[in-house]
């Protein structure tokens, strides 16, 4: 299947992209194109104009410190998956990036696009929420920071204003992170996934916790109760089980051909427990 015709505009810089994207509702941005192009082919997305932000300068680069990882919006998910620095400082992001689609799609798909597409089955939204990251967005009214909790509104909808685009991601670092995803086969989009990032003190105490989900009715919901269960404890088995159960109970799930609500809830619980165990082991290792 072939995409219907549309106008094409190459953005030369962020300002150009902003003004091009602000031209109307049927204008869509393309970066890596790995989400948009299949939708164009299937005629699910019908933009009148596509603005290519894939060559905008200044939106690349990975910069990793102990405190945080900064990613340009056009960094590919393959680059995140392959980065040794990210693997050390943000293993949650490494693990999440490595299960996105397949290796060929990851070679073009961008971190900014993965977030901005706001697909409830995407992986990086949950990673962003769990790690309490934020994005820099630039638009007609200038630059602003959007916290992860404020970015995702509903499936395929973000809080980005018309003309606004994500330029940069800032993700607090922690070695105590993990991502667990259930896919039925390599070609599957995924059933559910759990992102976990913890801040663990020298004494093994969990100082803060981030838990978020993929594959639910909402985009990357934060599991508040799971986080509260964890914080202030040293992450023993009971705590892990309790937090996993809370994440599962609070998940807003829908039955579909990937499974019943009961099934998905059980899998959220199982994956949450696994991710927590791994994250805690990493934090204490």
């Amino acid at each position: 299947m072939r995409p219907p015709d549309f106008e094409y505009e190459l953005a030369e810089d962020v300002q150009g992209a902003v003004s091009a994207l602000a031209q109307g509702e049927s204008v869509m941005a393309i970066a890596g194109g790995q989400s948009l192009i299949p939708l164009l082919r299937l005629r699910i997305a019908r933009p009148s104009r596509v603005v290519d932000i894939g060559r905008v300068p200044g939106l690349t680069g990975i910069s990793v410190s102990d405190e945080s990882t900064e990613l340009g919006a056009l960094v590919t998910t393959a680059d995140v998956a392959a980065s040794d620095d990210i693997s050390r400082s943000n293993p949650l992001w490494t693990e999440a990036a490595r299960v996105i689609a397949d290796p060929l799609v990851r070679n073009l798909g961008t971190v900014g696009g993965n977030l901005a597409h706001a697909d409830p089955l995407n992986d990086l939204p949950a990673a962003l929420v769990a790690s309490r990251g934020e994005v820099l967005a630039e638009g007609p009214n200038g630059v602003r920071t959007i916290a992860s909790d404020d970015l995702f509104v509903s499936p395929f909808t973000t809080s980005l204003e018309p003309g606004e685009l994500i330029t940069r991601l800032i993700v607090p670092g922690s070695p105590s992170g993990a991502y667990e995803k259930l896919k039925r086969a390599a070609a599957d989009y995924g059933v559910v996934a759990v992102a976990v990032q913890l801040d663990i003190g020298d004494g093994g105490d969990i100082r803060s916790a981030g838990v978020s989900l993929s594959g639910t009715s909402a985009v990357a919901p934060r599991s508040n109760r799971a986080e509260q269960t964890l914080v202030g404890t040293n992450g023993g088995d009971d705590v892990i089980e309790g937090a996993a159960l809370a994440a599962a109970e609070d998940a807003d799930l829908a039955a579909d051909e990937r499974g019943s609500i009961r099934y998905k809830r059980a899998v959220v619980g199982a994956l949450a427990a696994r991710a927590l165990r791994r994250a805690i082991a990493r934090g204490n290792g």
Binding site: R184, A185, A186, A187, D188, Y189, E257
Partner: peptide
């Protein structure tokens, strides 16, 4: 090949039909 109750083929892509890949 999955049909919904109306007879729609809900498995009309490799993403839902699920051929085994090299990792399966």
């Amino acid at each position: 090949v999955s049909h919904d109750e109306d007879g729609q083929v809900v498995s009309a892509s490799f993403g839902s039909y699920l051929l085994p890949s090299a990792v399966e």
